[in-house]
Design a protein around this nucleic acid. Sequence first.
DNA 1: CTTCTTGCCTAAAGCTATTAGGCAAGTGCA
DNA 2: TGCACTTGCCTAATAGCTTTAGGCAAGAAG
Lengths: 199, 199
Amino acid sequence: MTRRVGLTTERLTQAGAELADEVGFDQVTVSALARRFDVKVASLYSHVKNSQDLKTRIALLALEEMADRAAAALAGRAGKDALAAFANVYRDYAREHPGRYAAARLRLDPETAAASAGVRHAQMTRAILRGYDLTEPDQTHAVRMLGSVFHGYVSLELSGGFSHSAPDSQETWTRMLDALDALLRNWPAPPNTPLTHTG
Amino acid sequence: MTRRVGLTTERLTQAGAELADEVGFDQVTVSALARRFDVKVASLYSHVKNSQDLKTRIALLALEEMADRAAAALAGRAGKDALAAFANVYRDYAREHPGRYAAARLRLDPETAAASAGVRHAQMTRAILRGYDLTEPDQTHAVRMLGSVFHGYVSLELSGGFSHSAPDSQETWTRMLDALDALLRNWPAPPNTPLTHTG
DNA sequence: CTTCTTGCCTAAAGCTATTAGGCAAGTGCA
DNA sequence: TGCACTTGCCTAATAGCTTTAGGCAAGAAG
């Protein structure tokens, strides 16, 4: 009378990601996942250390998927083309997989983060900037700014911030990418830093 | 033997906000709050509808506080000065009150959001842009972009994204504000939209 | 001084997380 | 073919958070 369902860590992670997209990342619960497999809750604990572990795995999966998409999108592109393609990966992924996207924003402990696809993603942001004429430290500033805009925009859009108001979100997105491209092509020099300023 | 502590909705909200800053917004729980007042859990339910209600109230408090700070910061400023002051309110508030800041990002239902200080905040963003030469719909695009950058940056900084790497976060922040100011002063025209394009 | 209101309480049910220990189906080895 | 061993899911139990129903006493109101 023993029925084996074939649980594995991978299947749980995958199903957890789907669950996240359906009901939201913070509704992802060991219990809900057990229900989905029609299995008792305790059974999951052989495959997953605990709830935190499960969520971390979903986050890593999401980071991996986003980095893969980004790599594919960047292939053969440069300059504004690359910038737009990269940005669209962000937005499209978040729209297709809101739960996974939320998971990707989970705070990972430093070692986990360092071993994640997040670093690959960051390197790609830097690669995009090679199409512009930025040198350190401005390149780092720009990397951080792009990360902020993309994450911020997607996050606000996802929480409904831009719906039900004109102009529509797509238009803002396009114009914003134009603006960012223009900014990167024309990155301002640091303002005068008065060092020994007499008078 | 009946001891009255003097619970009120306001005191609970206030204490909830403090708790959020100490242990994180999603660790804010009716139970924890009851412990803080040394009172039984059920007692809170006379003052707060449920856990969701409590969190919403904390969110509204945070929005109120941020809008107040922003209003104070904007008084007598314009242009880049205003932009920087407004941005710093965001960042400083998030650093001083991480839990409240997280609360402010809680997704509110439309009516609640419409009645919140969030709209005041949004109006102030628009007011800043009066110092630049933007007309609709570019003004709206810019409002959304600023919201995205500020929220995105603060959110990434808060989750530790920029720590332990050079250059330090403060420098990026300053240079980013320079860049945004430059961008707003020089907002690019929409690229050619080919309508009836022959050839 | 009695009645009423109100503020906090006890009690109870339901959900999630997590651990310990059990049993049976399949695996490997003789 | 048969036996031990591993493994996958199970039952059972503890503990915390949420929420509702109903009670009791301190203070307010007349």
